[in-house]
Design a protein around this nucleic acid. Structure first.
Length: 226
DNA sequence: AACCAGGAGACAT
DNA sequence: ATGTCTCATGGT
């Protein structure tokens, strides 16, 4: 079985090419303290994410589902103005008021309900601080059990909010892997390949995901080859 | 004016 | 396990 080794090398090469092409992308973008710095910024292994930022990342991960980041960001700014980027405030927020604040996020009624529910779940679980202590697999199962959080969102939260060594697989990643003749059928298959190809690092995995998004968002995917 | 963004859930097959 | 439908904005 030399084939798997070839695939690993391909993933390593892909990561190198994308880094040469785009460098660090500075994800996850945060709108609040400290100094509007992203979680992982170019040249850095990442910094400590505060509980407040972690909650904003969780909220953002829901708002950006099947939507552009600029639309999600508008919604976050509105929530911030309403003082709702806070677990205790959001859990008792009025669904209609919230929905109005996040219209730009698309599926706003649904997302409003789900965000309030997630805030309640976070509170019941003891808050971000308590969840931080859990091992990655256990935390992943907890997140997946909450309505509105699927595999991609759970892994985004694990990687960017909790700094866990988890690669996020999105629709772009599937398309890219398919075009490169890499496995693309199941979520776990893709994730496992990346996990065993590239040394575990939340910053590295997070930035690779960001660079793949950049490749498509910039319209460069059509001409990309390796 | 159609197309599609940093998806997930419910339900059918 | 896999496919299809809903959800219902804003920029190009």
């Amino acid at each position: 079985m030399k084939n798997i080794e070839r695939k690993k090398q391909k993933v390593i090469r892909l990561n190198q090419l994308l880094f040469q092409k785009y460098g660090g992308q500075g994800w996850w973008p945060t709108t609040r303290e400290p100094g509007k710095q992203p979680v992982y910024y170019p040249g850095k292994e990442g910094r400590r994410v505060s509980d407040i930022e972690a909650f904003e990342i969780i909220v953002g991960s829901i708002l950006t589902q099947n939507n552009t980041w600029s639309n999600a960001e508008k919604a976050i700014i509105n929530l911030s103005a309403l003082n709702l980027l806070d677990i205790r405030h959001m859990m008792k927020a009025d669904p209609q008021t919230m929905a109005l604040a996040i219209v730009s996020a698309r599926y706003y009624n649904q997302k409003s309900i789900r965000l309030i529910e997630i805030a309640k779940n976070l509170h019941k679980a003891g808050g971000i601080k308590t969840l931080r202590k859990l091992p990655t697999e256990e935390l992943r199962k907890i997140l997946l059990a909450w309505t509105g959080i699927g595999k991609e969102t759970a892994d985004s939260i694990l990687c960017y909010a909790f700094s866990r060594e988890i690669f996020v697989v999105d629709a772009y990643t599937r398309r890219l892997f398919q075009s490169l003749n890499l496995p693309c059928s199941s979520y776990e298959e893709i994730q496992n390949l990346v996990h065993c190809s590239i040394k575990p690092s939340a910053a590295e995995y997070g930035d690779l995901h960001a660079r793949i998004v950049k490749l498509y968002a910039a319209g460069d995917a059509k001409t990309f080859s390796m």
